[in-house]
Design a protein around this nucleic acid. Structure first.
Length: 651
DNA sequence: GTAGGGTTAG
């Protein structure tokens, strides 16, 4: 009698612990439940210990290390516990550990089941360890588990993640009764390896399709930049869920089709669908790239009202939008008002935002705040902080962080970090130092590295080094139009018109076309795009008319003389003037001045770097017209006020 | 008591 009461009371406690555990969202609360299990002796109960382990290893973030300790503490882990720890490691940033645990499991002669193989295969894929994956495949065969539906499906995706589409398809073709999930896996496998035709064939062959199959097609076409085909599938699919909509919004935004991304978002609301994290970050990303500030503000209002601001990722995307739309102050407000659990992305976004606006000191302060708050910076954080240093001319600080990254945090620099260092020295005019740095890099410099240095040669007018660097670039990417333009600019600034002509000729001979410059401006929440010397529509006419009026006022009141150094052609002076006067950023600016009401800040986004003459014109306009102009170019922000620019003529 | 396929911000 006494014994049975005890059994009942243990099972009640067990139930209680399990239900408590289910509610735990943080490591702290899980630890409290763990303490209860220890006190009640339930810590040796397989079911409770297993669930505790599962919760730490899979459900809660940053609790994997605790899971590892729990696992090692248990004297005789069973197959469930092994599977759980393998799964936890497989999905972590140390997937190699899942293979270690698997080997240990085999050594201890624990029974392997389909779960063990499915999880450890995922670990091998995430570790990028194809050979290990193949070994595990053989091992699964020995256990007769390779044809198990779940294991085989995992094998299909593992092989495709490793780029082996033929192996993936082979595993699939050998499956006796593939279900819709297996079919979807093989569709994804074909797309992942760039085999669009293969996916289409598979899709036609499928005996049944559910919603996910259609979504796979959408995502696949978008990845292959077959946007029209994606649209066709989207129209054709019988049912659309939030993933379908988010795929379209994020996909079109990623491919620079902002208008369409906005359009899909509006339509999503129109059909009564509730946006999710992905569609929201997608539409915000479109705003960020397009520089659509007013639309961004409207979205923030919507996010507040509809209760989306508890999502960290949405806040991060909103911050990025404000930074890229030129309002770093509003980004900072979002950052300060964010929920407690800011992520590494939140900190890095804010640091990068301050950096692109030239607020180097503030970015450095924030980096220290981040360290103090216990968040460990990663490689991308260091790219942002190095970028902050180079754009604010903080050379010593930049060098300090470059060393700190390696010495304190053990992060090995990658090509982007080296690029920042070249920019740091190059922008500051330490061109020889930058060149020596490139020559001493432990990894071979890419075209981007040399291009950074060529840009610096152009800023500082160093013809000799510029020529040397261009030679390196010609070996790596001989037909890049930007490089030719940069070299031509270097010659033009030095007045070497003959050399300019040679560059121009070589461009014509090699059929290299200059990337057309475009600029965008937002007026009444509509984005208007202008192209240099573009078609003569009504909008462009209006911009030209206003521009002529502005230039003549600048000549009289501002003493404006056009700077034609950056004109590629050795043409007559008058023609050169005409050529710079057609630059897209000037047209966008003139249009903004014609349309926007007085006192508004003019925000322009340009795809290339601002030219010297446009930069000078904007400085003058900001003084003569008492206007604030904000330009985002390919490299940074320029904030023009009272005749000067925040970049201190340094870009 | 655990899985496999589709969308995400720096």
């Amino acid at each position: 009698m006494k014994k049975s009461t005890a059994t009942v009371s243990v099972s009640v406690t067990e139930q209680l612990c399990l239900s408590l555990l289910h509610k735990c969202k943080t490591l702290k609360t899980v630890k409290q439940v763990h303490a209860i299990t220890c006190k009640t002796g339930l810590d040796t109960d397989r079911i409770v210990a297993g669930k505790l382990l599962l919760h730490c290893a899979v459900s809660i973030s940053d609790a994997l290390d605790y899971a590892r300790r729990l696992f090692h503490h248990f004297p005789d882990p069973d197959v469930f516990m092994y599977n759980t720890i393998i799964r936890g490691f497989a999905e972590s940033d140390t997937p190699r550990n899942s293979l270690v645990a698997f080997v240990e499991m085999r050594r201890r002669a624990c029974v392997l089941d389909s779960f063990s193989f499915a999880f450890v295969l995922k670990g091998a894929a995430n570790y990028g360890y194809l050979r290990g994956g193949v070994q595990l495949h053989c091992d699964a065969m020995r256990h007769g588990l390779n044809t198990h539906l779940f294991v085989a499906t995992t094998l299909v995706s593992v092989y495709s993640e490793c780029g082996c589409v033929s192996s993936a398809r082979k595993v699939f073709e050998e499956m006796s009764e593939p279900n819709v999930v297996a079919w979807n896996a093989v569709l994804t496998a074909c797309f992942r390896c760039g085999d669009v035709k293969g996916s289409e064939e598979m899709f036609d062959r499928m005996p049944i399709r559910n919603l996910t199959s259609w979504n796979v097609m959408l995502a696949g076409y978008i990845k292959a930049v077959e946007l029209e085909l994606a649209k066709e599938v989207f129209l054709e699919m019988p049912v659309k869920d939030d993933v379908s909509w988010s795929t379209m919004i994020a996909g079109f935004a990623q491919n620079g089709c902002f208008d369409e991304a906005f359009g899909f978002f509006r339509k999503l609301l129109w059909v009564g669908m509730r946006p999710n994290e992905v569609s929201l970050t997608g539409v915000l990303s479109a705003c960020a790239q397009a520089g659509a500030f007013e639309f961004g503000k409207i979205l923030q209002g919507f996010l507040e009202k509809a209760g989306f601001l508890w999502m960290i990722s949405v806040n991060n995307a909103l911050m990025d939008t404000y930074c890229k739309c030129g309002n770093v102050g509003m980004a900072r407000l979002v950052f300060e008002r964010m929920p407690e659990n800011k992520s590494i992305v939140s900190w890095t976004t804010m640091i990068a935002g301050l950096a692109m606006h030239g607020n180097g000191e503030e970015a450095i302060q924030l980096f220290h705040d981040m360290e103090a708050s216990g968040i460990r910076p990663d490689g991308i954080t260091f790219i942002s902080i190095l970028y902050a240093c180079s754009h604010a001319g903080l050379i010593e600080q930049g060098c300090k962080y470059f060393s700190k990254m390696k010495d304190v945090y053990g992060i090995e620099p990658v090509i982007e970090h080296y690029g920042c260092m070249v920019d740091l020295y190059g922008r500051a005019g330490k061109l020889q130092k930058a060149y020596d740095f490139v020559c001493q890099m432990p990894i071979s410099p890419t075209a981007i590295i040399w291009r950074t240095l060529l840009g610096a040669c152009s800023i500082h007018g160093n013809v000799k080094l510029g020529e040397k660097v261009k030679e390196r670039l010609s070996e790596l990417e001989p037909s890049d139009s930007g490089d030719h333009v940069l070299l031509s600019n270097i010659y033009a600034i030095a007045g070497k018109w003959k050399d300019v002509a040679t560059v121009r000729r070589s461009m014509t001979d090699q059929k290299i076309k200059k990337t057309p410059g475009w600029s965008m401006i937002e007026v009444d929440k509509i984005m208007y795009a202008f192209v240099a010397g573009g078609k003569q529509d009504k909008i462009t006419q209006e911009a030209y008319e206003k521009l002529r009026e502005i230039i003549s006022k600048l000549r009289i009141e501002g003493g404006y003389v056009p700077e034609v150094g950056s004109v590629l052609h050795d043409i007559e002076e008058e023609e050169k003037e005409d050529s710079v006067s057609r630059h897209s950023e000037k047209l966008a600016l003139a249009f903004g001045m014609a349309r926007l009401c007085e006192g508004s800040v003019i925000r322009i986004v340009k795809n290339l770097r601002v030219c010297r003459d446009c930069h000078a014109v904007m400085k003058l306009i900001s003084r003569v017209y008492r206007l604030e102009i904000l330009v985002r170019d390919r490299s940074r922000f320029h904030s023009f006020r009272d005749g000067s620019c925040s970049c201190r003529d340094y870009w």
